[in-house]
Design a protein around this nucleic acid. Structure first.
Length: 596
DNA sequence: TCGATCATGATTAGGAAG
DNA sequence: CTTCCTAATCATGATCGA
């Protein structure tokens, strides 16, 4: 049974679905089969609504009604958009629906007394700009110095260095630069990628060939042409603004357990279609253009941006690029607490009325200082006991609470979260990162760099039906094993896991978890993604039949907004390791193709 | 040397106001 | 449209004491 599980398991997944048939279907379960094609083309699959006469585009209205939207919403959406632009109308409807179903900010406020819902107006009318101490006026637009530091290097060397930094070999890089002398770095990497793919083809289809020369072949030519086409596209007058990826609002991706969306299918570029399945993650609020680049390297798959505040009591805005099916997702049970109140019940007693937070902000790698919380306590103690503190004090305190994710643990007493609490909020088992000689500082760091398990598990849940006997996973930048924990909690057996993680502390955590949960499969640990080459991959894959899933969240150090020192984007010292992900993924993809 | 502690803004986006 | 405000943000490096 298990012998060739991979082949069998793929049985009901249609990797080769034609693009034309990919559709957006309604969540409305089985009773309604009306669907709308994404590109302004309505398709009715049960002919009932075909010939009803109506004032507007009645067919469209019927379709939308069938998708579960109200007449009012549809009318509003059509009015706000061009009647002919189906895509925009559907998008508007989705937004309305998401807003309508968003219970968090409105309904979760426990007592909706007289003037609570007017808080915004109150704030603005009572607004007082006498702040405590900081009235810093930032001089905007002071100077626009462009750092010319790197210009001292010859251009050729500079580019070569960048490419080497991305993990490409000097040979690859210089070969590409010889072929395309005037190309940009992006174009060069496209070229190298194509060359790597061609090389992989050569390795597995013409085994005897020497590997040094870039041989021509159908596949390579095709890829080369594709890279060149992209080049032309960029050189043409297409403004770059058009390709900038924007973050959705609300940030719910293709849907969450509480915000079911209508989108249950999507179009995937041919190149993205597996095997293997892949799942890539990074911070949503990266510098401009970063996600465009990431997406370009991952077959132009559109990122799914999700804020984990729709899964748990803490925000976590992340982008995920994957080729997983997106219909029939299901959440981990039990559902985690979704408000601070429910997640940290002991804080309720001390939570002042004027702190309106119901969700925590992003859990980061560091915590607020004791000096800060102590200062706030002293400031609050000066206030009258029977009165709320002055509005300017409130404003200042709340600002610090939001900045440092402080919670109320006593009268006038604020505190940062405990590692245990962060563990819980992120969906890890209790004490997951505790013990084994791990310092408290390192716990915060490891947790702050991790997945939110419920969020990731929701996306990965579709794998349960596809791999009922378990799967083989390649886990890059594993950290403390967020993906592994998610799959385990989903009840998906882990057969072979190759986990690559640079931090020994984190590897210890995962190994310890692996043993404690009585895993039946094999865990193989590597330290450095840069040393994971084709030969090594081939060894692994030939021993257990290829990877079903490649997961990874590459370092965000140089992308994250909290970084004051080295927010250098994708070329940063650590974040440039991103390029290892597509490199390895492409290798896996082509080894899989060779094995088939 | 290790761990705990703490000070250190900028880059985005979005909305309101002009 | 521009300008100004609010808001959020998987961090780094220096220092100190054990």
């Amino acid at each position: 049974m298990d012998g060739n599980a991979s082949d069998g398991d793929y049985g009901d997944i249609d990797w080769d679905t034609e693009d034309e048939l990919e559709i957006q279907g309604g969540i409305v379960p089985s009773s309604c089969a009306n669907v709308v094609a994404p590109n302004a083309e309505a398709v009715v699959t049960n002919g009932e609504a075909s010939s009803s006469a109506g004032p507007l585009n009645s067919k469209l209205v019927q379709d939308l009604l069938g998708m579960g939207f109200s007449e009012q919403m549809i009318a509003k959406a059509i009015k706000e958009n061009e009647e002919t632009n189906t895509e925009l109308i559907v998008e508007s409807l989705l937004t309305y629906k998401a807003l309508e179903e968003s219970p968090d900010e409105l309904n979760s406020v426990p007592q909706q007394q007289h003037s609570i819902d007017n808080g915004v107006g109150q704030l603005s009318s009572d607004y007082d700009d006498n702040f405590l101490d900081d009235l810093s006026e930032p001089l905007s637009g002071s100077d626009s110095e462009i750092d010319e530091i790197t210009s001292s290097l010859p251009k050729y060397d500079k580019i070569l260095l960048s490419l080497a930094n991305m993990g490409y070999s000097i040979e690859e890089a210089s070969a590409a630069m010889d072929r395309c002398p005037e190309a940009s770095i992006l174009e060069l990497t496209d070229f190298i990628r194509a060359a790597q793919m061609a090389k992989a083809d050569d390795i597995f289809f013409e085994e005897e060939k020497p590997k040094l020369s870039l041989n021509e072949g159908l596949k390579k030519r095709k890829l080369y042409e594709l890279a060149m086409r992209k080049t032309k596209k960029r050189k043409g007058m297409l403004t770059e603004e058009d390709e900038v990826i924007r973050l959705p609002n609300p940030m719910i991706g293709f849907g969450t357990p509480t915000h079911s969306l209508v989108v249950t299918h999507r179009m995937l570029p041919d190149e993205a279609i597996g095997p293997p399945f892949f799942y890539y993650e990074n911070v949503a609020l990266a510098p401009k253009g970063v996600w465009d680049t990431i997406s370009r390297f991952l077959y132009d798959v559109e990122p799914e941006f999700v804020d984990s505040k729709y899964f748990c009591a803490a925000a976590r805005k992340r982008g995920y690029i994957h080729n997983l099916p997106i219909n029939n997702r299901f959440p981990l049970l039990p559902l985690p607490p979704r408000t601070i109140n429910d997640a940290l019940p002991l804080t309720k007693r001390w939570w002042p009325q004027w702190d309106k937070r119901t969700k925590l902000n992003c859990l980061q790698t560091g915590i607020g200082s004791a000096k800060l919380t102590d200062g706030i306590r002293k400031a609050l103690e000066k206030c009258r006991d029977d009165h709320e503190p002055p509005l300017d004090v409130q404003k200042c305190v709340i600002e610090q609470c939001r900045r440092w994710n402080l919670v109320w643990v006593g009268k006038n007493k604020l505190a940062p979260l405990e590692p245990d609490e962060v563990e819980m909020l992120l969906g890890f088992p209790r004490n997951h990162t505790r013990g084994g000689g791990i310092s408290r500082t390192d716990r915060y760091k490891s947790l702050g760099n991790s997945f939110q398990v419920d969020t990731v598990a929701y996306h990965l849940s579709v794998l349960k039906d596809i791999f009922p006997n378990g799967l083989n996973m390649l886990s890059l930048f594993s950290g403390i094993g967020g993906a592994e924990v998610a799959l385990h909690r989903l009840g998906i057996p882990l057969k072979n896991v190759v986990s690559v993680e640079i931090s020994e502390v984190n590897r210890d955590i995962v190994r310890s978890w692996w043993e404690q949960t009585n895993q039946k499969g094999n865990l193989i640990h590597l330290a450095d993604v840069q040393q994971l080459n084709g030969d090594l991959l081939e060894q692994f894959m030939s021993s257990f039949g290829g990877f079903d899933l490649v997961v990874g969240g590459s370092p965000c150090n140089n992308l994250a907004g909290s970084n004051r020192v080295s927010r250098d984007g994708l070329q940063g010292e650590h974040s440039s390791l991103f390029y290892q992900y597509p490199r390895i993924l492409n290798l896996v993809k082509f080894i899989m193709k060779g094995q088939q």
